[in-house]
Write a protein that binds this DNA or RNA. Sequence first.
DNA 1: GACCTGCGTGACAGCGCTTTCAGAAAAGGG
DNA 2: CCCTTTTCTGAAAGCGCTGTCACGCAGGTC
Lengths: 344, 344
Amino acid sequence: MADVAERAGVSTSTVSRTLRGLSTVSPEVRARVERAARELDFAISRQAASLVTGKTGTVAVLVCTLNSWFMGSALSALGPMLRAADLELNLYVVPDLDERASFFKRLPARRNADALLVFSFDLTDEETARLDDLGMPVIYVSQHVDGRPSVYVDDVAGALNGTRHLLNLGHRRIAFLQAVGSSGFSFSSSERLLGYQQALTEAGLPLDEDLVVATPFPDKHGTAKALGKLLSLREPPTAVFAEHDEAAVAAIRVLRAAQIGVPEQMSVLGFDDHPVADLFDLSTVAQSPSDIGREAGELALRLINDPDADHARHIVLPSHVIPRATTAPLFQAQNRGQEQAGSP
Amino acid sequence: MADVAERAGVSTSTVSRTLRGLSTVSPEVRARVERAARELDFAISRQAASLVTGKTGTVAVLVCTLNSWFMGSALSALGPMLRAADLELNLYVVPDLDERASFFKRLPARRNADALLVFSFDLTDEETARLDDLGMPVIYVSQHVDGRPSVYVDDVAGALNGTRHLLNLGHRRIAFLQAVGSSGFSFSSSERLLGYQQALTEAGLPLDEDLVVATPFPDKHGTAKALGKLLSLREPPTAVFAEHDEAAVAAIRVLRAAQIGVPEQMSVLGFDDHPVADLFDLSTVAQSPSDIGREAGELALRLINDPDADHARHIVLPSHVIPRATTAPLFQAQNRGQEQAGSP
DNA sequence: GACCTGCGTGACAGCGCTTTCAGAAAAGGG
DNA sequence: CCCTTTTCTGAAAGCGCTGTCACGCAGGTC
């Protein structure tokens, strides 16, 4: 910066002011400084600036994996959003419980970011408390934590609408397929189950526990077992609502392998609108991870710039049903099922 | 840090030395300092440290998107690797040409990182030159740039082996399906084509230009058109080698919709071992993005710590053929094809 | 012409660390 | 027991910026 100042024949103060687009710098001097900076390929050192401003110009993002469609889409939207606000994006990938423990013990983001976005973690109270005294706004994404800023889709409403779609098609025996992940990360399982139950209750149908089955995920054998339970009921379901699309696809593969036509004999509905949904023509309840990412970024900006902002604000995003080829009316489905039984 | 020093009854110099595990600090003092630091939840400010050391403790990563299996896997491996080396990961998501231009103009990573990893970009010479005077090691990942450190899988060898697999199954008319992306990002298309051609030449087969077709991707209609060309040849192929799995899956869907059995009448081979490959039982040439991510991270570490290291080093990773259910011997395939023609 | 106002600029302190240097204390050697 | 060596610790400078403050200078007012 001293070099730029010398070359432009001004003081470093003026260079600093110019480069930050600040207050009053005479147009002539401004031009000189900008030219000098360009010629020297000068870029400000955030480190030095942050030392005195106290702002790091960085947003930290905590994720358990990037290896998922959801994270990829959300961050692909978040990244450019932050760039536009001239913020750096600092990524913490915490894949397993060991790393997680060490992250929460050391909190490496402390003092090195202006805000933290926590994606899709099922946090313990202790962990939440730990983040509370991190000294920066913490935004919970794709999850809601009481009293803390959160951004998420309304899973209850989504599952409610999805179930209604099946009900409207005439289905009365509707199963719910839960996907139990391996690590302690929440994928809003219970909320979706709740929405499913609400829809049934609303329709005056009983909640049959036999219709709610769980499968470890990913695990094809587990899916087969879970579906086996359903298919061996006295009154088997005519539709399956899977907690997420990947489980739904696993179910479709099991059903088709067993010569059970989808949707002729069994409607299958997913959740998420994951790319595989399109590949399998899967009807599903769509959510938009890129909207979530963007909203989370904007909330972060607001909280950084205005510390008095409402720190308990929740942003709830909508979802919507996308009917494709794996859900069909019950009556027609049964007819078709009998005519073409056995053919995929 | 002053607080810690006071609480431990030592100078800030000693605190600094202790916290960095440096040189000789007496065990007793060390214990006192560590306790004080723990009690005050003290975390070092990287900004302040970097100001004097000149090291930022950060690795910048440039990607065009995260919304792909490859990036997700690579970064999911890279992240923990860098964490283990106590480095931050600074992510730059540059999705379109505008952002790309602005990135290369401003080079925001300058002075704010110790190394830059560039993922899967098809860079112009100008852009490469721009990165050269960034003043930090730049590592090219999933691409190779002459004279610069690069990490990538051997696409030529992979495609060679994949084609050999088809040849070994008896196929002689083997098509190659190119997937032309929209934006200027390379997915090693030409290398894979080259491997395919090498294998044919090696087997003494002519290179029939009609057998190489391109499809815009993603675009189902385009795939149908490309396959149409192949199927209307005087001597249509009995196998299709797709540049990547997603194109292969698109091809399978088109073929099956047209009642052409895969693999009975047409073998299909993909490339990448993308998750959809497993879902469609697609034979493919596997690469390991997590290995790429890890190797890239390790190379970055080496270049940061040892500036004299070989800056032109290329790390080439292997790929291997995974036969699944979409490739079958030619002879048997034709028999089966005739017996069951028309059934999927 | 003395006074005020306000704009544009430079000098300088200081952000929180690291690092050199020097000095105190302990250890060893004659 | 004195002197050298080694081991440990503190004082202080300075990294590259920002922000405060003071100053010079034009233009306006009485």
